[in-house]
């Protein structure tokens, strides 16, 4: 029973990682860049939630969409200002810029909110769920369910709408997509928009279990989610989902049965092992040379 409870915890933590990893993987798929500022979008989402709920007294069902909207606008703005001018630049320049944006967001939060962590009332409050004499965390179940809904929705969006197919086309061949009449800039903007909105939800869920937000709140889940995306195969949407869930479970079980201090080391260790055995990640595509 104890094991089952840990498994549920792992699944819920993993689904948060998965939601963030989706943003990394979608942006990588389309722009071939690692958006290291993605983790900090979560932090902005969490601050927004906190202001919306405690200062503006918004109910959760309003505060969550507001947070998603703010993050979506932020993601598109970051792309427009920082990354778009570098479309033709070397990958290294883009990577350094992304790290710069990450520091910028953290410093901005530090200036506005100070370094003390701020208590956030949870937007999701579901008590323990009892099944017989076994109790599991209601928040964990809500997190898991919400993530499943979002993932199914995203998968449907990508595979069944023309905008989604345009995203797939752009990620494969920008020039050919343009020849089909696809507006590449708009498609990239949509990618940043949806990835950042998902990150906002992840932020809300993360805060619901963590309870505090600070300027650096986004960096650890951001890095873990990046690991999840690479583990699953960066560029692959199902890969990000699988990688996130696996990572969450590994982390929870390590914490429970091995050592709390070693949990992170184990998580990153798993990444190293997977990359040694299968460098493209679990569901990553084989890189084929175009003939």
């Amino acid at each position: 029973m104890e094991f089952l409870a840990q498994l549920v915890n792992g699944l819920s933590l993993g689904s948060i990682y998965a939601l963030i990893a989706l943003g990394y993987t979608m942006v990588y798929g389309i722009c071939k860049m690692l958006n290291f500022a993605h983790g900090d979008v979560i932090m902005v989402g969490a601050y927004t939630l906190s202001i919306a709920m405690s200062t503006l007294h918004f109910p959760p069902y309003l505060a969550i969409p507001v947070s998603m909207l703010v993050c979506a606008v932020l993601g598109v703005t970051i792309e427009r200002i920082a990354y778009k001018p570098l479309r033709q630049a070397s990958p290294l320049a883009v990577l350094i810029t992304a790290i710069g944006v990450s520091y910028f967001l953290q410093s901005l939060a530090l200036l506005i909110f100070g370094s003390t962590q701020r208590k956030v009332e949870s937007a999701i409050n579901v008590g323990l769920i009892h099944i017989g004499d076994f109790a599991i965390s209601g928040n964990a179940v809500v997190t898991l369910l919400l993530t499943i809904v979002l993932m199914v929705g995203l998968t449907w969006f990508i595979n069944h709408t023309m905008t989604g197919k345009a995203m797939l086309a752009v990620s494969e061949d920008k020039g050919a997509a343009q020849l089909m009449g696809v507006n590449v800039n708009k498609t990239i903007a949509v990618t940043f928009l949806s990835g950042s909105a998902l990150a906002a939800v992840a932020g809300v869920l993360y805060i619901a279990s963590y309870g505090y937000v600070g300027p650096y709140t986004g960096s650890m889940p951001g890095i873990k989610a990046f690991v999840a995306a690479v583990l699953g195969g960066i560029g692959s949407v199902p890969g990000a989902m699988l990688g996130g869930i696996l990572l969450g479970i590994i982390e929870s079980l390590s914490k429970a049965y091995i050592s709390t201090q070693l949990a992170d080391a184990i998580v990153f260790g798993v990444l190293i092992v997977v990359l040694l055995v299968k460098p493209t990640g679990l569901l990553g595509k084989k890189v084929t040379e175009k003939v």
């Binding site: 023309m162 197919k165 345009a166 797939l168 086309a169 494969e172 050919a176």
Partner: peptide, 20 residues
């Protein structure tokens, strides 16, 4: 070099041809 969308189905490629 044709530049068809290798990872999409034949039908999806044709759909993208009518994107506009």
């Amino acid at each position: 070099g044709r530049r068809i969308f290798q990872e999409l189905s034949v039908y999806e490629n044709l759909q993208l041809g009518a994107f506009t």
